[in-house]
Write a protein that binds this DNA or RNA. Structure first.
Length: 947
RNA sequence: GCUCAAGUGGCGGAAUUGGUAGACGCGCUGGAUUCAAAAUCCAGUUCUUUCGGGAGUGUGGGUUCGAUUCCCACCUUGAGUACCA
């Protein structure tokens, strides 16, 4: 308690922060204006999933950065929308519900409150009046509404946009689908207008479903019967579930699928127009995976069948020596001859037993089997053997490849292994040992009409030949697969769908939202239906009404509702539009609000969403744009990925097999195990509080602790991901208690570049904490009186101020928040040294610092006598004339003679220039042997000095 | 394997278009203050040195009057992705 009485006053951050947080909330200081004449700026964070663990210091990093930017934009006169919400549907709440029987809504609500308390302490300028929660029926009503829009839409490749199904019906009615270019199921039959009209309602419905942007299809999934759910590939380890170690089987399930593949070309092209990092765009490009090539059809010898393959290298068509099908390929059994039948069946069985993951992991071993059949080369008509092999994936292209051993390493390996021919089509290149895979630096040989051509011309010529001979055509393939949209879970959005004779029917939008029914348990039912199957049909009031409404249904009770729920990404794929007009109960946002706010100008979040959320959001935005619902076709103009804040774990050395713990400096060759200890029991100099440790781990209360000569027990340190299980979590609440929110905000920015991963180290925070106290003492004396006067500022302090304004402005606009903290420190140190107490510089300084440390700035601003908020001010402008720096002389070689370039400020007169030159005469003389005789001034800052 | 990013003091990290490398902070050292501690303030802190200087931004080359910055090769680390025909 000595500190309170000491002559040096520390600023009372607790009182100040509480005071201004309350004031901002009450005055709604950060509420965005509605559509107005002011220029707008939309700053968005990726909204959090409210987990039970609460926030650790890593979570707010991006929020602090976006808050600084939002505050800066307000200071620049923008109407800023800076909202926050919760991605509140999710698996952990459901798992907790399964274990405890508590409704996920209850725990979610508790977690949200905890998050809100923690966020509020940090002084964010969020406009909470437009908070969204994805699990709120008033919100997911619109998620369901968008789903219905997708259900009621198809993709027209001719106009390259989505259109309503009603327009598709008109086309079918008039001309059938033979001229239609649309994204649809591969197995869609071709029909005329007459044939369409002759179909019954059910047949028509089945056809339409093949065109819808969300459709039902059977897909293979990883099913864990024990957990009663589908698992993602990375949730499986060695064929067992990661959680619990239960067996996982491949199972076919009918699921809702999103036809994102229809948008692949536009999702790729759109990347060129948005301001994202190269790395992030690159990972989306890879994910979309465009490859340009050709489809080639091979006739099967003595058969009506054809094998179609996709290849990116049709120029190597004369190098084909066999064709390989995936074991799952539809034609495999039909093409297998009687002699090969057993071998092929064996092979299919063996590969089926291996999971997809094993197959992918095991790249080196080569396996395959001959089917006994042959295809005919499209040009030479030479018979080529058909093989099956598991290096060909059923899911990509056509599930079949034309094997060119001289031009593809996998084909080469396969050919060598099974002693198949390796014809060489590359002139003068040896392909005996390995394939030649370059796309340049060769001329083609042994290839009929392609001889002597290079890659580019051969590609062009061969596609012309394929098309004129009607044995293939140029084609572009995408790797992007349609996205499975069904989850066998409880805590997600219900689908607005019911079934009539097994066919889906949409629920009328006027009955939305379809709320989650009450269930007795959150597990799947005994017969394997999703948890929603536990609810009685009539628990679904609104759904029931819709079924009753449907006039062509007679026996309402037999028509089941969709029991799956939507995946986590559904609610997050459009939430940025809802913030614009959150109270609206007629539309998800009004056209006026969307016309004003348009799109997110700055989006900050983690890069782990590169191929999930960020891709799906772009997909839904483009879709809504096609229907004229939203005015933009890209949701996020600029995107920044904040790096992770890592934890610094602490470990103790335990001598193996004993209960003896050694201080780090006492380990002398003993075999030790490292055991995690809670970082909160370790001080800044890496000393462990042994008593606390014994208390924490009762099983070690009798253990021996070997300390060093100073009686200290030193722990081992290591940087790891911050996580509860590693006991390295630092809670922002504790930092706020000890140093205040402004210190935490500044320190997180000061740690390093925003986009870089960096370790947390609580010890370093004293630097910014001391800085804020120095800042305080610049304005307030030890008797708590204002020191600031109306006196004119000195030239030196004005220069310091304007340098700082320029630097901070550049830093914020370039997202280099770390260096502006240094700038503040330098400014305050210089002002202290200059004994500066002029309002003229100290007022602008507060405005400058306010985005970083809003509480202390606001307090001092009011102490200076202002009634308004510091954030209502305008960001100060810097005076270029004050920013004159030192002069520099550099020698420049020109036409063999030595010339000198001198960087000088604009406002220097001739005498000053001469002085500047003389000041550097030593350098110049060293370089040129003498002092320059003549100084020539050219426009701008550059002055040439000629010998 | 492929793609991307990054290697600078004891540590986190600065350095504008190629122009005084190590800003700023932590830590450490010394001093002031204190009965003492905490806190605060001041000075020092890349290495090396015969105190003139010399070396130095992962390694080896190159371009340049001048390179942390640009080019080539290599090494290391991190992230993503994976039989995509």
């Amino acid at each position: 308690m000595w500190g309170v009485n000491s002559s040096f006053m520390r600023y009372d951050f607790k009182a100040i922060e509480a005071k201004w947080q309350g004031y901002w909330a009450q005055a709604q200081t950060y509420k965005a204006e509605g559509p107005s004449d002011k220029p707008k700026y939309y700053v968005l964070d990726m909204f959090p999933y409210p987990s039970g663990a609460g926030l650790h210091v890593g979570h707010p990093l991006g929020y602090i950065a976006s808050d600084i930017y939002a505050r800066y934009k307000r200071l620049c006169g923008y109407n800023v929308l800076h909202p926050q919400g919760y991605d509140s549907f999710g698996l952990p709440a459901e798992q907790y519900a399964i274990e405890t029987g508590q409704h996920p809504a209850t725990t979610t609500e508790q977690n949200i409150q905890r998050y809100r308390e923690q966020l509020d302490r940090l002084g964010f300028s969020f406009d909470w009046s437009c908070e969204v929660r994805t699990s709120d029926p008033d919100y997911f009503r619109w998620t369901q509404w968008i789903f219905l829009k997708l259900y009621d839409a198809w993709y027209d490749k001719t106009s390259d946009k989505a259109r309503p199904v009603s327009e598709l019906l008109e086309i079918f009615l008039k001309e059938g689908n033979s001229n239609l270019l649309a994204s649809c199921d591969e197995n869609t039959p071709v029909f005329s207008a007459q044939e369409w009209q002759a179909m019954d309602k059910d047949q028509q419905a089945d056809i339409l479903l093949k065109y819808r942007l969300t459709y039902l299809a059977e897909t293979e999934v990883n099913w864990c019967p024990y957990l009663g759910t589908v698992l993602a590939n990375d949730e499986i380890v060695n064929g067992l579930s990661e959680r619990g170690g239960h067996p996982v089987v491949r199972k076919k399930m009918t699921q809702w699928i999103m036809r994102i593949s229809a948008y692949a070309p536009r999702l790729l092209a759109g990347l060129d127009d948005i301001d994202w990092t190269f790395a992030l765009k690159e990972s989306q490009r890879n994910w979309i995976g465009k490859s340009v090539g050709a489809l080639v059809h091979f006739e099967v010898k003595d058969s009506v069948h054809k094998v179609s393959v996709f290849t990116t290298r049709p120029d190597t068509i004369f190098g084909v020596s066999f064709v390989t099908l995936a074991p799952e390929h539809a034609l495999v059994l039909e093409l297998t001859t009687a002699e090969q039948r057993n071998a092929v069946l064996d092979y299919i069985q063996t590969t089926a037993r291996r999971s997809e993951r094993d197959r992918m992991a095991d790249v080196k071993s080569i396996s395959g089997v001959f089917t006994g059949s042959y295809v005919l080369h499209p040009f030479t008509k030479k018979p080529l053997p058909i093989w099956i092999g598991d290096y060909v994936l059923a899911g990509y292209g056509t599930g079949a490849v034309m094997a060119v051993p001289c031009g593809d390493q996998r084909d080469h390996d396969f050919a060598k292994f099974f002693e198949l021919p390796i014809p060489n089509i590359f002139k003068g290149i040896d392909v005996e040992q390995e394939a030649f895979v370059e796309k340049a630096g060769f001329q083609i040989q042994n290839s009929d009409f392609l001889n002597d051509l290079d890659y580019a011309s051969a590609m062009k010529v061969v596609i012309e030949h394929l098309e004129s001979a009607e044995v293939g055509q140029g084609q572009t393939n995408f790797r992007l697969r349609d996205a499975v949209f069904s989850r066998q879970r409880y805590w997600g959005e219900p689908f607005p769908i019911y079934y009539v004779n097994g066919r889906p029917e949409p629920i009328d939008p006027k009955y939305l939202p379809i709320k989650l029914p009450q269930v007795d348990q959150y597990l799947p039912t005994e017969d394997g239906a999703p948890p929603l199957g536990r609810a009685t049909q009539w628990a679904w009031d609104t759904a029931k009404k819709s079924v009753v409404d449907n006039s062509h249904i007679d026996h309402i009770t037999v028509f089941p509702l969709e029991l799956n729920t939507m995946p986590g990404w559904a609610g997050s794929a459009w939430y940025f539009f809802r913030y614009m007009d959150v109270q609206n109960d007629k539309e998800f946002a009004s056209p006026a609000a969307m016309a004003y706010w348009k799109q997110v100008d700055l989006y900050i979040g983690g890069s782990e969403h590169a191929t999930g959320h960020l891709l799906y959001s772009r997909f839904w935005t483009k879709f809504l744009y096609d229907l004229g619902i939203v005015p933009v076709d890209e949701p996020f103009k600029k995107l920044i990925n904040q790096g992770m804040i890592l934890g610094t774990s602490a470990f103790v050395h335990r001598v193996e097999g004993t209960a003896t713990f050694l201080s780090k400096d006492q380990v002398k060759g003993e075999k030790t195990q490292l055991i995690h200890v809670d970082v909160n029991m370790v001080d800044a100099s890496n000393q462990l509080n042994i008593e606390q440790f014994k208390n924490w781990r009762k099983d070690f209360s009798d253990a021996t602790f070997v300390t060093n000569a100073q009686g200290q027990f030193v722990v081992e340190r290591e940087v790891e991901k911050m996580s509860k299980s590693k006991y390295n979590v630092v809670n922002p609440d504790e930092i706020c208690d000890q140093y205040g929110a402004d210190s935490l905000r500044m320190y997180e920015m000061f740690l390093g570049p925003l986009e870089q991963a960096k370790p947390w180290n609580t010890a370093g925070i004293s630097g910014v904490y001391n800085f804020l106290n120095k800042l305080w003492r610049l304005y307030i004396d030890d008797e708590n009186n204002l020191k600031v006067t109306d006196a004119k500022a000195s030239a030196a302090s004005l220069k310091t101020l304007h340098k700082s304004i320029k630097k901070v402005k550049e830093d914020i606009e370039g997202f280099s928040f770390n260096t502006s903290v240094s700038t503040f420190m330098i400014a305050v140190n210089e002002f202290s040294a200059q004994s500066c107490n002029s309002k003229e510089v100290l007022e602008p300084l507060l405005i400058l610092i306010s985005p970083y440390a809003p509480h202390i700035s606001e307090e001092l601003w009011h102490r200076l006598g202002h009634n308004s908020s510091v954030t209502a001010q305008l960001f100060p402008k810097f005076d270029e004339g004050l920013l004159v720096e030192q002069t520099k002389v550099y020698p420049v070689s020109f036409n063999g003679k030595m010339r000198f370039t001198l960087e000088l400020p604009l406002d220097l007169d001739a005498t000053a220039i001469e002085q500047a030159v003389l000041k550097y005469d030593k350098t110049v003389a060293q370089l040129a042997g003498s002092v320059p005789k003549k100084v020539i001034i050219v426009p701008g800052k550059i002055i040439n000095i000629v010998q």
